[in-house]
Design a protein around this nucleic acid. Structure first.
Length: 475
DNA sequence: TGGCACTTAGG
DNA sequence: CTAAGTGCC
């Protein structure tokens, strides 16, 4: 039986795996391979938190392969050279993989495909991560979408998610290959166990993804529309890291929720999946956006000179604004932050502190288990106002109002900012506003590092400097 | 997927 | 005085 190398990357599962399925259909014996090559990810090599998850997810994939008689063959080095060496040693006739859409990875994949085909190997890639490939939807004018709602409308018109399909029962075994290394030797897992607190919250791997999906359907979906905005309540799906690493296919998620819960609730959830698709669409069509403003008008925006003390206060959750600090501390403790709070902390960084959104994007990149170039870029540019789907006004979140609205009892704040636990619930949103007797004592900042009204005003003032002057009709 | 100033209704 | 609605950035 001829061999097909299955080149695993961000598709760490065995069900719903089109490359694996294609190999079986064509009569190939699949050889599962992982190549550690972060130097091929351009300026956005995965951060330490992402690596910690990947280590466990790869271990889960390997265990799952072993249950079926196979295992994961692990390498480190240049992807193309490694694949060529594997093909030469095994006499493989094909290399199959799942597409990636990050610009550097997509370019690398294309170079790999050409080189392999030039030596008469079959080299093919499939969609394993999306409901719609980024080139599949376009405006009536044939352009990429720049606004979410029309994108979502087009997606609904074209809606035809595929059905889930099972993993193969048994897989063939291969001998150890020259150059193979151990998963533990890749250095993905932290040397110092700073991630120890993460794993009470997460189970990386295909089984963990399935458990998260079932838990969401049981506990979160029924109240998703309003509940998803509440960081104090566990109603979000928490599927983002599983989706990022391809531990579950989006079409399997769509299938699972299709008949669960009230129709309005599941529609709201599928809409959130579509935001993820929109992020990939935008990244594919505007590949500069991880590093540059989508809207070039903001290239002249007067960002504040990065003050290391202010940036560090934001990073460590010591800004003195409770909802902001809670979010950044949640991320450091669990590798994840509630989406509503992501918007609030991002707005605070880019508007009140007026620091460039890339400072925040980089910090998220290194500290989120679901760090994803498409979603991270979309989210930061959206909040900063530099990106797609821009509002006709300059959106500045008021972190106190956001906290009162979405964490009304201050439970989320109390969970992550223990200095404020002794305060009455109402005082936790803005402790500097309450009588001094009920203010936090000890180490928590007495006041925010920037006055909220002044921060807002300075952001609006900065915006005026890049506003195109309106032509005076009277000359 | 916002906030704020201003207005009006109603306690 | 608060809640809710409106117009505007």
């Amino acid at each position: 039986m001829p061999t097909a190398v299955i080149w695993f990357r961000d598709d760490l599962r065995l069900r719903d795996h089109p490359a694996l399925q294609a190999a079986a259909r064509a009569g190939f014996a699949p050889l599962p391979v992982y190549i550690h090559a972060p130097h091929e990810d351009g300026g956005w090599a995965p951060g330490a938190t992402s690596n910690a998850w990947r280590h466990r997810s790869l271990a889960a994939l390997d265990a799952s392969l072993r249950q079926r008689g196979s295992r994961l063959h692990v390498f480190a080095g240049d992807s193309l050279a490694t694949l060529q060496a594997i093909a030469a040693v095994t006499g493989a006739g094909a290399v199959y993989w799942s597409r990636r859409h990050e610009p550097a990875a997509a370019r690398r994949d294309e170079a790999v495909r050409r080189a392999l085909r030039a030596q008469r190997l079959r080299a093919d890639a499939w969609n394993a991560s999306l409901l719609f490939e980024p080139w599949q939807l376009e405006t009536r004018a044939g352009d990429p979408f720049r606004v979410f709602t029309p994108f979502w409308n087009a997606a609904r018109r074209a809606w035809s998610p595929q059905a889930p399909y099972p993993a193969p029962d048994a897989l063939p075994e291969f001998d150890r290959l020259p150059g193979e290394t151990a998963l533990d030797a890749l250095g993905l897992a932290p040397d110092i166990p700073w991630d120890a607190s993460f794993w009470a919250h997460w189970t990386p791997g295909e089984a963990g993804a399935d458990a998260a999906l079932q838990a969401f359907i049981e506990h979160g979906l029924h109240d998703y529309r309003d509940g998803r905005d509440r960081p104090d309540r566990p109603l979000t799906s928490r599927l983002s890291p599983h989706l990022h690493f391809g531990e579950i296919a989006p079409w399997r998620i769509v299938d699972a929720v299709a008949h669960a819960g009230p129709v309005e609730e599941r529609a709201a959830f599928v809409r959130e999946l579509a935001w993820r698709e929109f992020g990939v669409h935008v990244l594919h069509h505007f590949p500069q956006t991880p590093d540059a403003n989508f809207n070039p008008r903001f290239d002249d925006f007067p960002w504040a000179a990065p003050d290391p003390a202010l940036l560090a206060a934001w990073q460590r959750g010591r800004t003195g604004v409770p909802i902001v600090d809670a979010g950044l501390r949640e991320m450091r403790a669990t590798g994840w932050m509630h989406n509503r709070v992501r918007m609030v902390v991002a707005s605070f960084l880019t508007k009140h502190l007026r620091l460039h959104w890339l400072h925040g994007a980089r910090w998220f990149w290194d500290h989120l288990v679901d760090a994803d170039l498409a979603n991270n870029t979309l989210g930061w540019q959206w909040v900063a106002g530099t990106g797609v789907d821009a509002a006709p006004y300059f959106r500045i979140f008021n972190p106190v109002l956001q906290a009162r609205k979405f964490d009304p009892a201050g439970e989320y704040i109390a969970r992550w900012v223990p200095e404020l636990r002794g305060l009455p619930a109402k005082a936790r949103h803005a402790p500097w506003e309450v009588p001094s007797g009920s203010r936090p004592t000890g180490l928590y900042p007495a006041r925010p590092i920037v006055d909220l009204a002044e921060g807002r005003a300075s952001a609006l003032e900065a915006l005026k400097r890049i506003r195109v002057p309106v032509a005076d009709p009277l000359g």
